[in-house]
Amino acid sequence: MTFALALEQLLNGLQLGVMLFLMAAGLTLIFGVMGLINLAHGSLYMVGAFACATVAAWTGSFWLGLIASLACAAAAGAIVELLVIRRLYDRDHLDQVLATFALILIFSEGTRWMFGSFPLYLDIPPLLQGAVALPGGTQYPLYRLAIIAAGAVVAFALYLLISRTRLGIRIRAGESDREMIGALGVDIRTLYTVVFALGAALAGFAGAMVGALQSVQVGMGEPVLILAFVVIVIGGIGSIKGALLGALLVGVIDTMGRFLLPKVFVLFVPPSQAGMIGGALASMLIYIVMALILAVKPRGLFPPAHA
């Protein structure tokens, strides 16, 4: 194994981690502020990707599509919050799981109704096409580097938003004491809608970015959703910092596992079998890591201090 390959795999892990962070940030924010567990977060990711693909096909511009994905996902999030989610805040997690499970069914089948059963086409914008040279003599796709950069920008913006703005103060207040913030005269219902729409927009943004790399199709949000849950549970639910570190951890472990495990097994069994066993173990790896972490730290690595 060369340095170039190791570096490339590390970047791949980082890029997966950044994508997961965009999903996980919204999830963990919504849980931290409203105490809501939202299984339909993956559907908002799908909404973002479909919006981007549709607008990009109409206008020929990926960038307009990206804006549309933010707008559509935020709008879908706000509508869902107003119609459904807002009735679930004082319910137990069980009701939230069921209601948002129902939302997945509605979103998935509704999207198929509107767009048909075939995957949509969405390509990377010309500006970000191609690969660039890396130290060590290898090449790396520019678009993936752009995703890493976009993720870093979003993470920093979220940090500023939460630590420096009025909205951020309210969000933090909402996280630590929900009754109190209402008593202080903040319109808590509007705050909740805004936070939910913000989380949805992040998911939609992730969906659009990834949609250009993958297949824009119904059900694309589900695998990401489960990974994002793994991330926030590892990181400590409600903690943005935990989500960031958890996402990077999961991204790197998953990528490295898929890359290295078959190589480890090749030392013991024939290559074809090593591929199968290594691959099987790699697909279970992050769940094993999650179980281990929770066994030692039942509230994740960075549980929010107040709760």
Binding site: F31, I37, H93, V97, I226, F229, V230, V233, I237, M276, G279, A280, S283, M284, Y287, I288, M290, A291, L294, A295, P298, R299, G300
Partner: peptide, 27 residues
């Protein structure tokens, strides 16, 4: 292992174990 946690953590860790068994069966 799971019962050491509670609330959402419990929901998610049971899901994680089921996913583990699922991927094992698939592969």
């Amino acid at each position: 292992i799971s019962l050491r946690t509670s609330g959402v953590y419990f929901i998610m860790i049971t899901l994680a174990f089921a996913q583990m068994v699922y991927y094992f069966a698939v592969s």
